[in-house]
Amino acid sequence: MIPALTSVGKTGPASALDGMANITGPASKAPDVTPEVSFASALAAATDNAVSTLRGAETLSLKALQGDVNTREVVDAVMNAEQTLQAAIAIRDKIVSSYLEISRMAI
Rank of each mutant, 00 (worst) to 15 (best):
D93A: 10
L60F: 00
L43N: 11
S97V: 05
L100C: 08
T59F: 02
L17W: 06
T53M: 04
S97L: 10
M1W: 08
G9S: 11
A64P: 01
V74H: 01
S28A: 13
S38P: 09
T59W: 03
K94D: 11
Q83L: 10
A77Y: 00
I102P: 08
E73S: 14
I2P: 13
K63H: 05
V8R: 08
T47E: 15
G9K: 08
A64C: 04
T53A: 05
S61T: 05
I89H: 01
V96M: 12
G67I: 00
R55I: 04
D76F: 07
T34N: 08
M79Y: 09
A16T: 01
P26K: 06
A21V: 00
Q83R: 09
A81D: 00
N22G: 10
K94V: 10
T59G: 03
L5F: 08
L60V: 01
A81S: 01
Y99M: 11
L85A: 13
E101P: 04
A14H: 05
P26C: 07
S41T: 15
G25T: 04
N22I: 11
R104A: 15
L17E: 03
L54Q: 06
L62V: 04
P35G: 06
R72A: 13
M1K: 09
T59Q: 07
S28G: 15
M20R: 06
L43M: 13
N22R: 09
T47Q: 15
Y99E: 12
E82Q: 11
I91W: 03
I95A: 15
Y99C: 09
G67C: 02
P13S: 04
I23Y: 07
L65W: 04
K29F: 11
T84L: 01
G12Y: 04
A64I: 02
R55H: 09
P13Y: 00
A42D: 15
S28V: 10
N80V: 07
T59E: 05
V51P: 00
T47V: 14
L5I: 10
V8E: 11
N70G: 15
N49D: 12
T59C: 02
